[in-house]
């Protein structure tokens, strides 16, 4: 069971004069799959960035707890895994080098077995020593899942997780989401009905425009 908790209270975001959403309340306490939905421009990605601490809300607050203690923003990156189309990995490095550099910067250790398992699981084991610039968009998306899972995060954020993936890739993603949700919190932001169908509850951001 996850002892991680996320609470977003009265979160609003304004870019210039444009209100993205207002007074959004969102919380996840138990392990499971939570969805965030809304049409294009409704602020799904912005909301994800706010609840992961990447950007600040205009109003409201987001608090993360682990074992009942508040996680300081300086340490938050160690608890989260994030996959999104706008997460870019380094083209000049190989897939393995990318993961090694990220892990060293995070200050975490992982076993070779875990790394090999993830590369096998996402079907890019044979290409793991190729430069990322030679990867297709679908392969890059698969590598992003390895990037998000290698440090065994307590909460996972997936923004449009099945974009650029073929059917087998989508199956792998759904399988991963279900497995991870047994022990951790998984939050999916998407418009795809198939992505939202596996969520136990869905936050509709369009309702927070006014």
């Amino acid at each position: 069971m996850s002892s991680f908790e996320l609470q977003a209270e009265n979160v609003s975001k304004v870019f210039g004069r444009r209100l993205i959403f207002k007074d959004v309340n969102f919380s996840c306490k138990n392990n499971g799959i939570y969805g965030i939905s809304g049409p294009n421009g409704s602020g799904k990605s912005t909301f994800l960035k706010i609840i992961t601490g990447i950007i600040s809300p205009t109003k409201g607050k987001v608090i993360h707890y682990f074992d009942g203690k508040i996680i300081e923003s300086e340490d938050l990156h160690n608890y989260i895994g994030f996959v999104a189309p706008y997460v870019i990995l380094y083209d000049e490095f190989t897939a393995v080098e990318n993961i090694h550099f990220f892990s060293k910067i995070r200050g975490i250790n992982f076993t070779q077995e875990k790394l090999d398992f993830l590369f096998q699981h996402f079907g890019i084991f044979d290409r793991k020593n190729d430069l990322v610039k030679g990867y297709s968009s679908g392969m890059k998306q698969r590598l992003k899942f390895i990037f998000a899972l290698i440090h065994s995060p307590k909460i996972l954020f997936f923004d449009e997780p099945t974009s650029n993936l073929d059917n087998s890739g989508k199956e792998k993603v759904y399988q991963t989401v279900k497995e991870e949700s047994q022990n951790n919190i998984v939050i999916i932001a998407s418009n795809e009905d198939s992505d939202l169908a596996i969520c136990s509850s869905v936050l509709e951001l369009q309702d927070y425009k006014i």
Binding site: I54, E74, D75, H77, V87, L89
Partner: peptide
């Protein structure tokens, strides 16, 4: 963004 996700 990738850097923001891996380090303080």
């Amino acid at each position: 963004l990738t850097l923001q996700l891996i380090a303080s």
